[in-house]
Amino acid sequence: MLKLITPVMQVVEWPMRALQRVLGPRRLAWAFLAPNLVLFSLFAFLPVILNFVYSATGSDHILLRDRSYVGAQNFAQLLNCQSYTDPNSCRIDVFWRAVWNTVSFVVLQVTFMVVFSLLTALILNRKIRARGFFRAVFFFPVLLSPVVVALVWKWMLQDQGLLNATLQNLGFGTVNWLLSPGWAFGWSVFISVWAHMGFYTLILLAGLQAIPRDVYEAAAMDAAGPWRVFRRITLPLLMPTMVVVLVLALIKGVQTFDEVYAFTGGGPGSATMLVIQYIYQTGFAGTPRLFGLASAASILVALVLVGLTAVQLWLTRRNANG
């Protein structure tokens, strides 16, 4: 290997030394960082800046030169509500329906996700038969495409789907799961938990395995019961991992789009429309394409995500400092 690297280094050495003489050792670091910074600016900073610029413009034209400056009008439209808890009183009612759907979705999804992931991780951490197989089974849905997950569940839950056929064969009445706002929303949460639980289970499992065994042995010698061991040892020592899982699940929950969109399309009506779907439909799938309104909505969502990330950093640091 060294034989290969040495000639390359000999070729590179001279220009590097020359560059160092010109720039000095401190500035040379910037020369190395420059290509990455250019790419990062182009694909990360520029879209963010453009998003802010678009949010202050109107019309359905895509090129900035054709768009008119409207100031904060898009934000004003989105935030124009008599009562934020009643979407019907809002100028853009669908946005607020999507916001409240997202809040309910995140609360339910994150709660179930953390609880079920923890339970699964606790079970898979025990010496059970075929433990490797079950770990793979729980992780498998994470590998599937969200659209595949959504379509498979849709085939099972549609009016003449597998679940209703089974219920009918067993002599029960059928339910039109996708026509009822409550059921459609409930199933969306369930599918999302089912699809992503394996990922969080894996993180918690790693956290559980990092807990020193001697602490449990000491507890066993003191005749501590399983519930007490869980409450006093497992949970406190797992807390740093739990915080990571909680915040990751929260951020992912707010960003949910593909599987719910493919599963219900946001329906019935707007019962399962989440805020990212609203942004997509307003900016790209609707006619006319309201890029300004979609950009403004995406900035509001970004602010929420920045807040959640700040909470994560604060909690992580607090945990690290004991």
Partner: peptide, 12 residues
């Protein structure tokens, strides 16, 4: 058939 219109969202 309510499934056609009501089971979807947006303008899908």
């Amino acid at each position: 058939d309510k499934n056609v219109w009501a089971a979807q969202g947006g303008a899908t």
